Computed example of a mutant assay.
Amino acid sequence: MRNLSKKHYLLIIIAFLLVLTACAKEQVVKTSQEKTVGTEAVADVKGNLKVHFIDVGQADSILIENGENNMLIDAGNNMDSDLVVNYLKREGIKKLDYVIGTHPHEDHIGGLDAVINTFDIGKVYMPKVTHNSKTFKDVVTAIKNKGLKITTPVVGSKIVLGDAQGVILAPNSKEYKDYNNYSIVLKLTYGNTSFLFTGDAEDISEEEMIRKGFDLSADVLKVGHHGSHSSTTLEFLNKVNPAYAVIMCETGNDYGHPHKETMDKLKNKNIPVYRTDENGTIIAVSDGEKIKFNVNPGDYSYGRGSNTEKASINKNKSSQDNIFTAKAESYEEKAYVDKNGNGLIKGNINSKGEKIYHMPDGAYYKKVNAEVLFKTEREAQEAGFRKSKK
């Protein structure tokens, strides 16, 4: 080296600088490449991401915390309003940066009006579909009274919650026959971990997400529609390929959730299942690398099953002038509507706090006031109401 001239030293330095420049350019190209929808760049994270699957019985309510940033996905039934509000207060929540009402069913948005009225709210996301229930109208009124506007979900749009990166994956169509498929589906990535929140999205919505080539892979899957057979197709489950699954349902619920078909798929893939009907409130904590739960996994047991569910929904098929037949899932379900298309089945909460629905030919139909009207028995049952015995 002592025999090298100044000219040689200069050439060596220039060559070294050229190598550094080439490496820098390559890195810029890599970081600027477009990513598939649903794939988020892994960022450095600080602290933990806490996901609370709040036990609200046969309903959904999920609180997500990252530092001072908070999000609420759904808020249970109307009767869960105090439960959800008090839970958030115990967690020290004062502001919710995002509130998501996945779809207009009462077991998902029932407590949203109380939440919106109680806390400082940033953005409210709801799908572009209306419902004729009092519950839906109460939520819209609360949003207006707070001076807020509803943000319609746009597939591919990003949501930033502290160090967590979210992307909206559904709904992908403007119209569905079933409200469940309007569900907002959100994938949330925190460091090297990810969560997929599906609301009640059914096989139709799942197939759309697969067909569009979205990155559905996630460590934790919030199983769609309370573990119903109408969601979690095998193809969808394979695409998500979760390490853990969470099912939100109530012990002994009238729908037989979770269904055998869904539990068998999870069992066959050896996916640990955390269930609110067995575990109560479930809290998943991610440090960006690993996810820990506050409870042990539940089992793969299931409810009554889909055949019983279908039979109960098909009861009392009496013929009336104001009834027409509409196809729902894989069976024929009758809708009770007036000439303007308004539901005729009355939903009422009695003095004991029980949620009862009354058919037009029921003994008490004319005596009760409707707090909410339904078009089908299935719609009433999904909102947490049981049929009057008379």
Rank of each mutant, 00 (worst) to 15 (best):
119 F>P: 00
347 G>V: 03
181 N>M: 11
306 S>H: 06
156 G>L: 15
50 K>H: 12
171 P>E: 13
207 E>H: 07
269 K>T: 15
134 K>D: 15
380 A>L: 08
315 K>Y: 10
258 P>K: 01
214 F>Q: 06
103 H>G: 11
205 S>T: 13
124 V>D: 00
379 E>A: 05
110 G>S: 11
370 A>P: 02
159 I>Q: 01
302 Y>Q: 06
74 D>A: 14
212 K>W: 07
299 D>W: 02
292 K>Q: 13
19 V>I: 15
295 V>E: 08
266 L>P: 10
22 A>Q: 01
109 I>H: 02
239 K>V: 10
259 H>G: 00
100 I>E: 03
281 T>E: 09
122 G>P: 05
273 V>I: 13
158 K>G: 06
124 V>N: 01
199 G>A: 12
147 G>F: 02
228 S>R: 03
380 A>K: 11
130 T>P: 00
102 T>C: 13
162 G>A: 03
285 V>T: 15
224 G>H: 06
226 H>V: 09
131 H>K: 13
151 T>L: 00
145 N>Y: 08
300 Y>A: 06
17 L>S: 08
208 E>C: 05
66 N>W: 04
340 N>W: 12
104 P>F: 11
275 R>E: 08
11 L>K: 15
121 I>G: 04
221 L>T: 01
52 H>R: 01
66 N>G: 12
4 L>G: 07
201 A>T: 08
77 N>D: 15
90 R>N: 13
76 G>M: 07
192 N>H: 11
127 P>I: 14
311 A>K: 04
80 D>G: 12
179 Y>A: 11
13 I>R: 14
225 H>M: 11
343 G>C: 08
255 Y>V: 00
151 T>G: 01
290 K>E: 11
125 Y>Q: 08
325 T>M: 07
150 I>Y: 05
70 N>R: 12
318 S>T: 13
270 N>C: 12
338 D>G: 00
345 I>D: 05
81 S>T: 12
227 G>S: 09
22 A>L: 10
48 N>M: 02
102 T>W: 10
128 K>E: 14
291 I>S: 04
303 G>K: 03
314 N>Q: 13
371 E>N: 11
140 V>T: 06
99 V>F: 09
40 E>F: 04
71 M>R: 02
378 R>H: 07
265 K>D: 08
315 K>T: 03
387 K>E: 13
390 K>G: 15
388 S>D: 12
151 T>Q: 01
280 G>N: 08
50 K>M: 15
287 D>G: 15
18 L>E: 07
287 D>Q: 11
46 K>D: 03
174 K>H: 05
9 Y>E: 09
349 I>H: 11
273 V>L: 12
191 G>K: 09
82 D>K: 10
299 D>N: 11
199 G>T: 08
237 L>Y: 06
54 I>R: 00
260 K>S: 04
375 K>Y: 03
225 H>Y: 09
181 N>D: 15
15 A>Q: 09
384 G>T: 02
325 T>R: 05
247 I>V: 15
347 G>R: 03
116 I>A: 00
128 K>R: 14
24 A>P: 00
168 I>Q: 02
131 H>F: 14
172 N>E: 14
98 Y>H: 10
66 N>I: 00
68 E>N: 13
313 I>C: 06
209 M>D: 03
298 G>H: 08
125 Y>N: 09
290 K>G: 04
